[in-house]
Design a protein around this nucleic acid. Structure first.
Lengths: 230, 230
DNA sequence: CAGGCCTGTTACACTTTCGTCGCATAGGCT
DNA sequence: AGCCTATGCGACGAAAGTGTAACAGGCCTG
């Protein structure tokens, strides 16, 4: 559970028919799909949705796929997201490679959907290897997703399921500010409707749990924006 | 030919990313891993390395996994080696079954690495029951897979078959939290339909058995997640 | 074929956790 | 300072998760 719930894919393709087919297949594979039909929207959605992987068409009006790719790979906070490029011609792959855009994989149209799915899964595994044996750490907090145990210093903490998921989410990207909406999405799940204030309550409970043996408050409130760790 | 040392696995998968992840996990599990990315090499390596178990991708260029499997199961000297097939789609499993290739187990992609590891261990146990006198231990619980005997301290415990398998599963990875679904899969087997609450009941029975001579409860309930040992 | 063991399901009690509300408090802006 | 909004926090009814006893059916054994 590098992140709770489904892996997220951002699908950027200007041709509606192809996009629909791909989206359908990706969802059938268990991905949560966000769609964009141009590069500009894609850049915005990357920040909003924080996808685990991006599938990017090479030829698009306005901001081309290759440009999106180049920009994303320049920013440290998005560099780690795997990008799979779709290109219409085999010769273009060489250009893509030559341009050193930093795409992580390439698939040539016409591609086999099955193949693309396989490559998407492969990239996902590469970045997120089933969280095997990973222990999240931040300052004196340690969290082992496998055993579901949380330590603060020498003490073992007892957290409820939601507090646990919340902490996992925050610890996966320490310092990053999550909006209440994002947290609802990541911790509770997309199509669950609960008041955003509920997040506040659970953050409060998490704080209390984390500080029950003393220590400083590791959760930072960013007024008007959300919460972050550290 | 009970062999000493690490169990050997031959991993045949043409997709580099997936192969790498699997190899990593298998090594973490204590296997000595030999890798191949095609069926031809696999056939050679079977003779050279004499693996205890083979994990075989179904779709591969040249000699397909299914063909490798068929050939190995025809030769008396390799017939005994368990083969786990990886297949990309559920429908293919039926084909594998129908073709009577003799694969001993199959896992559908995208699979859980944990599940694959568990199945690999299970196959290994089946063929190599001695496991060279390996006895699972956790705190004061000892479990001898060969004699099917379980000890708690000085006492011998009598467990039912399901309780036993459940305990084996938990003891193979002490501390790890297993969801009810995972336990159903690993203990009862896939394609068995039983209510998840049944797991609760059997965990309860296992607990009673484990504590019949006193001692603390070694099974940890993780609310909203599942059960773990210790 | 009777008896015992094991199994899966169900029902009920109990506990924990959840989501919301109301009000107190803190932060920022004019 | 004064106002307004965002946030913290205690309380509470509701919902969900879990432990366990009881029961009925299946399987094997003697």
């Amino acid at each position: 559970m590098a992140r709770s719930g489904q892996p997220r894919v951002l699908l950027v393709e200007d041709e509606p028919a192809q996009r629909t087919v791909l989206a359908y297949n990706l969802e059938a594979e268990g991905f949560a799909v966000t769609q964009a039909d141009n590069g500009e929207d894609a850049m915005v959605l990357v920040d909003e949705e924080d996808p685990d992987i991006i599938i990017l068409d090479w030829m698009m009006p306005k901001v081309s796929g290759i440009e999106v790719c180049r920009r994303l790979k320049m920013r440290p906070e998005t560099r780690g997201i795997p990008i799979i490029m779709l290109s219409a011609r085999a010769e273009e792959v060489d250009r893509i490679r030559g341009l050193e855009t930093g795409a992580d994989d390439y698939v040539i149209k016409p591609y086999s959907v099955l193949e693309l799915m396989a490559r998407a899964r492969a990239q996902l595994r590469r970045v997120r290897p089933s969280t095997a044996g990973v222990v999240l750490e931040h300052e004196d907090i340690r969290l082992d997703p496998e055993s579901h145990r949380v330590y603060r210093g020498e003490n073992v903490l007892k957290l409820g399921p939601t507090e646990f998921k919340l902490l996992v989410t925050l610890m996966e990207r320490p310092g990053r500010v999550f909006s209440r909406e994002q947290l609802l999405d990541l911790v509770w799940g997309r199509d669950i409707y609960v008041d955003t204030r509920t997040v506040d309550v659970h953050v409060g409970r998490l704080r209390k749990s984390l500080m029950q043996f003393g220590g400083s408050d590791p959760v930072r409130t960013v007024r008007g924006a959300g919460y972050a760790l550290g």
